[in-house]
Amino acid sequence: MLDTLCVPLIQAPMAGGPSNAALAVAVSQAGGLGMLAAGYKTVEAMAAEIDDVRAGTLNFGVNLFVPEADPSDPEALDAYATALAPMAAELGIEAPEPGPFNDDQYPAKVDYLVANPVPLVSFTFGLPTADDVARLRSVGTEIVLNATDPEEISAADALHPDAIVVQGAEAGGHRATHGQAKEPSESSTHELVSLAREYTDRHVIAAGGVTSPEIAQNLLGAGASAVQVGTLFLTADEAGTKDAHKDALVNGQYRDTVVTRAFSGRAARALSNRFTERMAANQVVGYPQVHYMTAPLRAASADNPEGLNLWAGSGFGACQARPAAEIVAEFRSL
């Protein structure tokens, strides 16, 4: 399917709301590849979104979160809950408590996608087993894996995927590192594309900082087969991004991004705001428990960008409020 795209552009799967069915359909109908983010959804919710997308396009993919390989430290989680308590009190909600580990219903989602095949499945936060890859392949599904450094590229290549997304330091939201405890590589997207060509002969998809056709063309010239775009689609009309998040990306109030573990316990790039500043000294390695601890605080701050996880890549200044088809059209000349 990657070989037949009219525009070599993939819409990044952005979990938590932005990557909804409407966005995936709009991107695919415009000639790119729309992606659904299955993270934080039940199997039933994922299935319903897949049905919604199928009604508008047959050209799409689904992204799964691989369960965390590195355990979280219970004492560190307790300490983080204590640090969050004053903020919860200010918002008038109960103090958070660390919850149990959550595998995001990963095995059941794989089972569903084997029984109900989709064109493409990608994996984030780690690698699937060879058996999972074989099962999905047996029903005609293409496999895309993520990597953020040469070691991860090699590990992904060993599973013989159809493509590998190499995600540079410019990327917004969560880094796709294979294990939460790992500090993300500082390599740029361009550097990773060049490195990937030394480690694999598979399709390479360049992700991170892709905010213009010129940047995309440069990455294709370095050896990428396609680019993956996330931040620009956060402010697309069809995206399910919170209004306060969209406004923060386009109104010019925020000028800096920061890589933070404050919202989820995993390294992620976001606009620097009051939450990231207040919790900077208390961050812990603790995914997905920290995500669920901060969820009530983020919900209570739904209209206040200072309390939200404002995921954003380093090139967020290029964001505009416009239809997804216009974004894809900018890249049509690639």
Rank of each mutant, 00 (worst) to 15 (best):
D52N: 15
G286W: 04
P13A: 02
V110H: 03
A69F: 11
S264A: 13
T257E: 13
N251A: 10
P128F: 05
A236E: 06
L127Y: 08
G230F: 03
G92T: 04
P296N: 05
A15S: 14
S264C: 06
Q283L: 01
M87S: 08
A321W: 12
P67I: 06
A163Q: 11
L2F: 04
K182R: 10
E183Q: 11
A226W: 01
L271S: 13
L64Q: 05
R269I: 01
A95K: 01
A37N: 15
L308P: 04
V53A: 02
P150D: 07
Q228E: 10
L136G: 02
E152F: 03
P117A: 09
A26V: 14
I205A: 11
H174D: 03
D104E: 03
A169S: 13
M293K: 13
N146A: 11
A38N: 11
E49Y: 03
N146W: 09
D132N: 08
N251Q: 11
A130P: 01
T260N: 07
A158S: 09
A244Y: 07
R197W: 07
L159T: 02
T241K: 03
G240M: 00
G208I: 01
A222G: 04
L33H: 12
T211V: 13
N309D: 01
S333T: 15
E68R: 02
P71R: 09
Q167G: 02
K109V: 03
S187M: 13
V139I: 08
T276R: 02
Q180F: 05
E186L: 12
G173F: 02
T57V: 11
A69P: 15
A216T: 07
L249W: 06
A22Q: 15
Y106T: 07
K41R: 05
V250T: 15
L2Y: 12
N146L: 09
L33F: 08
A95W: 01
S138C: 12
V285Q: 09
A239E: 05
Q180H: 11
T211N: 11
P86L: 07
Q289K: 08
S272Q: 12
P213C: 06
M14Y: 15
A37P: 07
F65C: 05
P8W: 03
V210P: 03
Q283P: 05
A24W: 15
L113Y: 02
N273P: 15
P296W: 04
A81R: 09
G32T: 10
E151I: 08
E68T: 10
V284P: 08
F233R: 09
L297D: 07
K182H: 07
L64W: 05
F101K: 01
N309E: 00
H174Q: 09
R197T: 15
A207C: 09
S138L: 11
M35N: 14
T141G: 02
L271A: 08
A295I: 10
V114E: 12
A163R: 11
A171M: 00
I164R: 02
M293Y: 14
P71L: 01
L5A: 12
E277M: 04
V285E: 14
F233I: 00
E183K: 12
F101I: 00
R255N: 15
A69H: 14
E97I: 13
I215K: 15
G209N: 06
P71G: 10
A95R: 03
